[in-house]
Amino acid sequence: MNQPGPTRSGPDHATLIEAVALHRDRAAFADLFGYFGPRVKAWMLRAGCNATAAEELAQETMLAVWQKARQFDPARAGASTWIFTIARNLRVDTLRRERHPSDLMPDPAAEPEAPIQADRVLAIAQREIRIRAALTLLPPEQAEVIRKAFFEDKIHAEIEKELGIPLGTVKSRLRLAIYRLRAVLGDLT
């Protein structure tokens, strides 16, 4: 598998993105590429892209990471979360061949912010770790719906068909899962 391995989590990736932002550090970028490129490709494949499109979108995502590294704000999102949103927006753009609202919304990361608070950065980095833990603790039927929504990118009616459960049940499981994840995360915005 590609370097660095999964043990190199949250805060390290944030440091690498900052090295790209501040010093255009190509070695740091290569590390990020090695970790996230194959993951973004896997996510694209699960979301229904063919192999060519998944490869292309993974490369475009990583190019955007290089180009937008200065907009990364560790006080707003962890590294994995930030890269997920870039990948998601590119995929939506490709599907729609148009803009995505998230690109149209004012991007707070693009504006100069107040001095970064170290404890907040740490809390945001911890958030991804806590979410991963919380996902493993969800009741299986809730975890299944969350995974289908995120991994396989199913719209809710498709989940309904696939699991053979009523749409109302899909929605209530999703709602319960989201409540639980939000409870785990507390008040961080």
């Binding site: 962890g78 997920f84 990948a87 979410i131 995120f150």
Partner: peptide, 11 residues
């Protein structure tokens, strides 16, 4: 929160 879930899923 949901986007952070997406990040966790990517990991």
């Amino acid at each position: 929160t949901l986007e952070a879930t997406g990040g966790a899923v990517l990991d």
